[in-house]
Nucleic acid binder design. Sequence first.
DNA 1: CATAGAACCTGTATGC
DNA 2: TGCATACAGGTTCTAT
Length: 353
Amino acid sequence: MPELPEVETVRDGLDRLVVGAVVRDVEVFREYSVRRHDGGPDSFRDQLVGRRLSAAVRRGKFLWLPLEDAAPTPLVEPAPSVEPVETPATRQPEPTGTHPAAALLAHLGMSGQLLVRGAAVSIAHAPGPAAVLVPEPAPGTDDWQHPHLRVRLHLTDAPSGARYLDFVDQRTFGHLSVQDLVPVAGSIPAGYGSDLPLLPEPVAHIARDLLDPGLDLDDLIRRVRRRRTQVKRALLDQTVVSGVGNIYADEALWRAKVHWARQTDKLRTADVRRVLDSAAEVMREALAQGGTSFDELYVNVNGESGYFDRSLAVYGQENEECRRCGALVRRDAFMNRSSFSCPVCQPAPRNLR
DNA sequence: CATAGAACCTGTATGC
DNA sequence: TGCATACAGGTTCTAT
């Protein structure tokens, strides 16, 4: 569900509200949500407790929070037991430098949300309110625990006052894990001020996204044209270019006046360039609006919706008039989903009709 | 290697 | 009302 603008909105919120915080405890309510973590829920908790969230970084739809060792203070009150037992809760944090570079990696899948609770700072996007107080959850109130709460991080030392970072996910395609950071030549994901060429292992194969300053657009155009597939499939292939999903692919193709089923190897360089430029443009515009949301399934870390759905030209607009020519927007089946396009502005290739 | 399709989950909307 | 089916913003695994 969340595509680049939505994930970037979340990354920005985490940057402002939870970077600098120390993880004091971790609750995993659904094991499946940490299935990508090597070692299971206990190991996941072990590798987070006592560590500081030092940045918020994104590539495409993946986002991660690099970890560093927090000040070596006891994590919890020493248990008043007669026999001291070594448990994850009582273990002292290891001295700085003993951990390999690692990060808390998140993918929101189709319905994942990261909600910051207890912060007294707003990250509201226009045209929303200028400032809102995110309430601290209180037992007994409706927002105490979201029905799809899968993982909760308990935080301290957040400059914003954030107390909890909640991972909420209805469809459970999203996931959290702790991953080693591995060097990948030349990559500069959003969130790194300079070149820190470190990516979580599961992100190493993900291509740069269209808002990455390190993107080589001409090289990307060549790679797209070297493929033998439909242009929309190439747009959605995260190893070709990342961040584009079903919504922005359709919007980009409409802006570029290219039908989704056109073969990449038959497109002219100028057409491919226009499609990619359009995709970058529509995602930048969506980002400025706080992303696209049709319902409560996508919200930013404050629980607020984005407003870009009002700007969508074709996605979800079946039988509505094309904003350019007035023809009725059509919907086609595509990869167990839908493609929306204008039958006049985006003529279908011959092999399709 | 490149490409296409199924699988992974939960929930809502729609039609019979 | 009950039940079946279709559909939803994504990625990974498997088969070809």
